[in-house]
């Protein structure tokens, strides 16, 4: 849950900084990060090589 909160804070931050063009890139990476972290902490996690 904390991670989603961070994600929304990040979006808000980019908005206040007027860096709209960074939003799509960050969305891709943040989504990837969340998927990876969630999958790593589940049962399937031990069968996925830690990518980075």
């Amino acid at each position: 849950m904390e991670r989603f909160r961070v994600f929304f804070q990040l979006m808000k931050y980019l908005w206040t900084r007027r860096k709209f063009w960074l939003i799509p890139i960050i969305v891709v990476f943040v989504f990837m990060g969340i998927v990876l972290v969630i999958s790593e902490s589940s049962v399937v996690g031990s069968f996925i090589y830690t990518l980075f």
């Binding site: 891709v28 990837m32 069968f47 996925i48 090589y49 990518l51 980075f52």
Partner: peptide, 15 residues
């Protein structure tokens, strides 16, 4: 792990 790791890395770097 090796095979899936390699595939994962390829996908990641592709991305």
């Amino acid at each position: 792990l090796t095979v899936s790791g390699l595939v994962g890395k390829l996908i990641f770097y592709g991305l």
